[in-house]
Design a binder for these strands. Structure first.
Lengths: 354, 354
DNA sequence: ACAGGACCTTGCAACGATGCAAAAGATCAC
DNA sequence: GTGATCTTTTGCATCGTTGCAAGGTCCTGT
């Protein structure tokens, strides 16, 4: 059975191809009679739209692309799930692309590598250096997820990383901890911001600088968290009384290392993370974490994307710019979405179940 | 800057559109002179292929679709990552679709809902009832992942679930466990097979039937594993001495429930799972599990898919079938891929680190 | 000098759908 | 009955690319 095209349906129903198209697209001026006749043929032949062909002609594919560094990282997987849910409510299909944390791939996406196949792009950039972001000005709908890009010339949706980190550290301070390790600084902007949140909280609590401690890692993964804490424990410095991990994956690794060394959590060392991935409710002990509202992030990101997709964009016929157009662009859209502090046993003494 | 088309490049370089196409596609009979001239224009104008248009004309999009029940389930996320890696080696882009475990969506995919946009489909079906699978005969390249479908008329790649389960249970038996609970039966074929593996192992070890125990769940998720074990512990029956969870997510939930109740693992109850998701190396204690080789699965699946994509398929002009074509189809291709038993502390007394 | 190739380049039509605008038919006021 | 208006249906061109096959040009061997 070869592919059924509109032409086939048209012949079967005895109408023109255009009329079939009208029925399929719910055009209003079609007589009920014709509509049902066509619909019957449609069903009978099992017609399915060729989205490629439609996309070619109409410029709309019905797809959006979501680019994340690693699909298998729980946070990104859960984010993807939220985006898929939100897109489903809008009859949009999500195409997920993995950048493998490669800045080359991220650059290619910024330059439009996915625009032919997707109407818009959600990019969760990991490594993209500020310089690249600053110079590019994409001519297609794009929304950045989660990362405060320096220039902020693209719309961005995500939690305020500084505030999130500060909230977590404040909580640990509130539990009486003072020697708090910040685990996870790396080259990323995100890492910088979470470091800043840590410093602000420590500073505000007047913790002596000698007790500050920032431990670098390469990636925000379980094994890096494990290795870093392992090293920390083997060192000869005094033990910290808390670990603030920049994400839950690091925290999971940290918990494992502490457990393996017989360090009690939270009695000896309290632990908190960021992301509140599902896994974090099942660690030993369950992990205190900052929970971004992924559904809100996805919803807002899609709304912003749709806004851009609807605006004519007017790339060519824009009237001669009055202002020389140098950085006179619209003010950056930066949406900070809400987050919650989820307190679990890893930082508190009132046991809870997942 | 509007979209740059081949026509624009052709004009800029002073050649025909077709020649540009030839250069872009690496056609061999192009003079070095022309090639470099075109290449220069290509770069200068920043040309990017419109994959939609190419796909429309040539029938090849360069995409394959991977449909999994839930992107956020670690096993599927890791599987997706493996598929993406394998596809990357072949210059294929993977489009990930989430079926949300909805058999309606799975059916739609089997009927070809993704064929316009993808050259082939990898489907990891969860709920698809045998009846549906049995009656459909897709006219596009399709490979099933992981699930032994009853009819097995589609190529399938994955571990032998019966053997995998048997291996895990044999290991627990080898540790001296006898009252082993199988955790995770549900309506799925996969669940049936893992139950069978459990039963075979128990039977072979001559464990008295009164000690067999199969606990049903709805989904193979952490919370279901937690709830089921919680219930088990609250019941008045004697405690099991081991839990064999049908996947690691269930095992993670089980471990948490045991931990919360103060049951020691593995001293009181040993635990083993299937999948060996990354998370399983970081549980308390680290989880013994069956590790399928995801890279092999992905690699073999793509190879089978490419085989189908290359074969002409000849759906219409096939010579009048000598045999009435009823179920005389080619023998099922079922590739069982290797797996390993990864022994960690949850079932053994020789401590290991992740 | 010329047929036969090999090499390079090109024009045309087509993939399956929709934008556009006009044609055909129906309805109504006067 | 006639034009005006509204509804319903249609034909044609077109989106950006590649398949096909032909048209050149330049060797090569005889």
């Amino acid at each position: 059975m070869a592919r059924v095209r509109m032409r086939d349906v048209a012949e079967h129903a005895g109408v023109s191809v255009r009329t079939v198209s009208n029925v399929v697209n719910g055009y209003s001026h079609v007589s009920p009679d014709t509509r049902s006749k066509v619909q019957r043929s449609l069903d009978e032949l099992g017609y399915r739209m060729d989205y490629l062909a439609r996309g070619l002609r109409s410029g709309r594919t019905g797809f959006i692309a979501l680019a994340v560094p690693f699909v298998a990282e729980p946070y990104f997987a859960e984010l993807a799930e939220a985006v898929i849910r939100a897109a489903g409510r809008r009859d949009i299909t999500v195409l997920i692309e993995s950048t493998a944390g490669d800045s080359e791939v991220e650059r290619r996406i910024l330059e439009g590598g996915l625009t032919n196949v997707a109407d818009g792009v959600l990019l969760s950039a990991l490594t993209l250096p500020a310089s690249d972001i600053a110079t590019k000005k994409p001519d297609f709908p794009l929304v950045m997820l989660g990362e405060h890009s320096v220039g902020d010339q693209f719309p961005r949706v995500g939690i305020d990383n500084v505030e999130a980190a500060r909230t977590a550290v404040e909580h640990l301070l509130g539990q009486g901890c003072r020697r708090i390790v910040a685990l996870g600084r790396n080259g990323s902007e995100n890492g910088r911001q979470r470091t800043e949140g840590y410093e602000r909280a420590m500073s505000a609590a007047r913790v002596r600088r000698v007790n500050w401690m920032v431990v670098p890692v390469e990636d925000w993964t379980r094994d890096q968290g494990y290795a870093a804490v392992r090293e920390l424990l083997e060192g000869d410095g005094p033990l910290p009384d808390a670990i603030f991990a920049f994400n839950d994956a690091l925290a999971v690794g940290a918990l494992r290392a502490l457990d393996a060394s017989g360090v009690r959590v939270p009695e000896d060392v309290a632990v908190a993370g960021i992301d509140a991935i599902q896994e974090s409710a099942y660690t030993h002990p369950p992990l205190t974490s900052i929970a971004p509202d992924l559904d809100v992030i996805a919803e807002r990101a899609l709304a912003l994307l749709e806004e851009q997709m609807q605006s004519p964009n007017a790339p060519e016929q824009s009237p001669p710019a009055e202002v020389p157009r140098e950085e006179s662009a619209a003010p950056a859209i930066v949406e900070d979405t809400p987050f919650r502090l989820v307190i679990r046993d890893s930082s508190a003494w009132s046991p809870k179940t997942p």
